[in-house]
């Protein structure tokens, strides 16, 4: 489309012509269609999520409003109306603690070593690829690993009276399960630190340790935090490996102790409680299951909320 220069025409006519050229409505059908597809995809995810949450909340509302205190503080029973999830919450809490205490430091430290210290060699590239593959290994496989190492081989340490089927074994197994995720997401966050920042610090004579401590970690902290919380949420939601390391699916006496001494006793956890109850017949169990799901969702959302608050604080610091 040749644009006639306004100078070649009279003032008023020129303006009119330019206006017509500029406002010419070129129809962009494929662009609009693409946008519609994107919106439809997003809407699908949101609607599915919304229906799930609504359905679960609706089903569980009787239990949650009727006897929330008893439900949170009660133990596993044979009647749905009398059952509570304290033992499951306790197991899930300790699994979270193990993940935070074991997987986070080890994973973040591994990522820092790989990104900041290790030279890029064939070996480090091999390790990098291996970690990525480990993140894709099915969780049941980690359950078998946990069964072989923490339950069988180290049983006398992880739970002498429970034949190793303790929350220690479960926590360590899930910590190892999420370790590759922690390493990968932390490494990505470290890789996103601008090279200029490192050069600036090295340029005034900082050592690798000082560059890492003063500049790289503070800058990468929000990203590391996001990744680790996703890993935590994954650990809290896993059921399959827990079954292999001997989580109790039926009735459990004890399993409510919050002291360190009680860590080597038999245990259960929220995902196990949910899968067990979901298999039982009757509307009562259905209600109890839904209520347990709502509680687990709330726990995970709480962990996410804390992470977002911490991340915002770090980001503000980063300036």
């Amino acid at each position: 489309m040749a644009l006639t220069t306004p100078a070649s025409l009279g003032g008023g006519i020129a303006a009119e012509q330019v206006r017509r050229q500029l406002t010419g409505n070129r129809s962009d059908v494929s662009g609009k269609a693409f946008q519609a597809i994107l919106i439809a995809a997003l809407a699908t995810s949101i609607v599915i999520l919304g229906v799930l949450v609504y359905d679960v909340a609706q089903t569980g509302s009787g239990t949650l409003t009727g006897r929330l205190g008893d439900f949170l503080q009660g133990s596993l029973r044979s009647q749905a109306e009398a059952s509570g999830i304290l033992q499951g919450l306790r197991g899930t809490f300790f699994i979270g603690v193990f993940t935070v205490v074991v997987a986070f430091p080890v994973g973040i430290a591994s990522a820092i070593y790989l990104e900041e210290y290790a030279r890029s060699t064939r070996l480090t590239r091999f390790i990098d690829v291996s970690i990525r593959n480990l993140a894709g290994v099915p969780s049941v496989v980690y359950g078998i690993l946990g069964l072989a190492i923490f339950v069988k081989a180290l049983g006398s340490f992880t739970g002498p009276d429970a034949q190793g089927r303790s929350v220690i074994s479960a926590g360590l197994t899930l910590a190892i399960l999420v370790l590759p995720i922690v390493i990968i997401t932390s490494a990505e966050a470290l890789r996103a630190v601008p090279a200029e920042l490192r050069e600036a610090a090295y340029g005034v004579g900082a050592t690798t340790w000082e560059v890492t401590k003063h500049h790289v970690i503070p800058y990468a902290a929000p990203g590391i935090l996001t990744g680790t919380v996703l890993a935590l949420a994954r650990a809290l939601g896993e059921a399959a490996p827990l079954i292999l390391v001997g989580a109790v699916t039926g009735f459990l006496s004890g399993g409510t102790g919050m002291s360190l001494d009680s860590l080597d006793e038999r245990f259960t956890a929220m995902p196990i409680v949910i899968t067990t109850w979901a298999g039982r017949p009757g509307a009562d169990w259905e209600q109890a299951t839904a209520a347990a799901i709502v509680v687990l969702l709330a726990v995970v959302l709480l962990a996410n909320a804390i992470a977002i608050l911490l991340r915002n604080r770090y980001e503000k610091k980063r300036g």
Binding site: E199, V204, A206, Y219
Partner: peptide, 28 residues
């Protein structure tokens, strides 16, 4: 690098205060 300082192509101050930017080298 303490004896041979460097200024880069793109200005790359630390995301810190002006004071801390300048004091960083002497501090480390």
């Amino acid at each position: 690098r303490r004896r041979i300082g460097m200024v880069f192509q793109k200005p790359n101050p630390f995301p810190k205060s002006i004071y801390d930017n300048v004091a960083y080298g002497p501090k480390v």
